[in-house]
Design a protein around this nucleic acid. Structure first.
Length: 431
DNA sequence: TCTGGGGTCCTAGGACCC
DNA sequence: TCTGGGGTCCTAGGACCC
């Protein structure tokens, strides 16, 4: 069998990928142990799609991303427990897991809400295994969350290792992929669409050339890959060969955009309601960048109809808007956003979704031009607004433009309590 | 009846300049 | 009638990730 060349030097390096198993479902289980061993699914916003499945739910054939209404029968028949997503809970649980990880290595890159890369230098293979098993046990004990750990010499290989650790029970949650023969085997059994960075479109393209697994992809001519798949494809291929192209990023790079968008619980037709929704999202997105001490210079507002509904006429549009000066003031952002939505609104359509994206974000202390004469006043008003809403619950204080009765707001019918972030939802223990 | 949300990066193509 | 070539910058859209 042909072997592909492996970069021996980089095999010294070790990157671990720690990934929480069915994270949202696991969070729900921490506070409701009766759910252990039972099938669970968690729904997207608006209770639209399945976004997390416990192992038991996967076994029932429920697919990732599937619309909830399509699997309602299977769910009912098998007594699957259903939750609306509760990001306050998951975000807080995520933080606990990440803090534990920081105790094991200073070199942690928090990659997503349920994943982190850990750089582990100077370990021998058997030490790696012991250490990772220890990490796994600690997270389970301290945070209650089960994780899988994959180790490789590049991020892409650690992803593959993690995948194996999850798939094959024999690994007991930890897979070290460092030996040449094992890497070869692993690539052989990894389907092309499961390689990190190869999505639907690229895997479809590759399959046309009979490239169906990671090994076949690794063996392709590098020039061909570069020509047909650009630098992205070339990077993935090099990473599979053990040449690290994607480093573990310890410092998170500054955020470039910030978005708030939602589907409505029912179609919206009139401009007043659309304006109201945009005002809500504007308020929320401004709050979000204030949390990060950022200000925005420009934004875009978009609206769209329901593209799944083939019988209705479709429309979608967006508009780019400049703010007079960089700001995080809800009033200014909402005002401009509402102006924008008035310009793209077209009568006679049933709108399903709208949103706002803020661009050109800068640190609030970095830009203090002469133009923003009103800044101190605005800053102190926003500070009070945020403090009151933090203390008495979000939207206690809000702009009039946001409206009061909001029956278009997203569905969230099966949400669990915010066990860890809200005093009035703390668990009550009876003896 | 009911189909998520929030990001990043790359590329192709147009506008513009010399 | 003939209609360059090369560089930069910007943007929209596509692809990917979780």
């Amino acid at each position: 069998m042909r072997q592909f060349p492996i970069n021996h030097q980089s095999l010294q390096q070790s990157i671990a990928l720690i990934d929480c198993n069915s994270f949202y479902a696991s969070c729900e289980r921490v506070f409701n142990p009766k759910l252990l061993g039972k099938p669970i699914v968690v729904l997207s916003n608006n209770d639209g799609c399945i976004i997390t499945r416990s192992t038991e739910a996967k076994a029932l054939g429920i697919k990732m991303g599937e619309p909830y209404f399509k699997v309602k029968n299977v769910i009912k028949k098998n007594n699957v427990k259903v939750f609306s997503s509760n990001y306050a809970l998951y975000g807080d649980m995520s933080q606990r897991v990440m803090e534990i990880l920081l105790g094991f290595s200073p070199d942690v890159e928090i990659y997503s809400i349920d994943e982190a890369f850990l750089s582990l230098k100077g370990f021998k293979n058997y030490e790696l295994l012991t250490y990772c098993k220890h990490i796994r046990k600690t997270i389970k004990q301290w945070a209650g969350i089960p994780v899988s750990i994959g180790v490789g010499s590049t991020k892409t290989l650690s992803k593959i290792a993690n995948h194996l650790a999850k798939k094959n029970n024999a690994y007991e949650g930890v897979c070290i992929l460092k030996k040449k023969e094992k890497i070869n085997e692993a690539l052989q059994e990894t389907e092309i669409e499961d390689v990190w960075g190869i999505g639907r479109s690229l895997s479809k393209f590759l399959k046309k050339y009979n490239v169906c697994n990671a090994k076949q992809f690794a063996l392709l001519d590098r020039g061909w890959v570069r020509k047909n798949m650009g630098v992205v494809g070339e990077r993935i291929q090099l990473e599979l060969h053990g040449v690290s192209c994607l480093g573990v990023e310890l410092l998170s790079s500054p955020q470039k955009s910030c978005c708030v968008s939602r589907s409505f619980s029912r179609p919206i037709e009139n401009i007043e309601e659309l304006k109201e929704s945009i005002a809500n999202y504007g308020s929320r997105v401004a709050e979000k960048i204030r949390e990060e001490d950022l200000i925005a210079q420009s934004m875009s507002v978009f609206v769209l109809t329901n593209h799944f509904n083939k019988k209705e006429k479709q429309y979608s549009n967006s508009i780019k808007l400049q703010l007079d000066y960089p700001t995080s003031d809800s009033k200014l952002i909402v005002k401009r956003a509402v102006e924008g939505v008035k310009r793209i609104y077209k009568n006679g359509y049933r709108y399903k979704k709208a949103g706002i994206i803020l661009y050109e974000l800068h640190n609030s202390s970095s830009v203090r031009g002469l133009l923003d004469y009103d800044r101190p006043r605005s800053d102190s008003l926003m500070k009070s607004l945020d403090e009151i809403n933090y203390r008495y619950g979000s939207s206690t204080l809000r702009l009039a433009a946001e409206g009061i009765r909001k029956d278009w707001q997203m569905r969230r019918e099966k949400v669990s309590p915010c066990y860890t972030t809200s005093f009035d939802q703390l668990m009550i223990v009876k003896s």
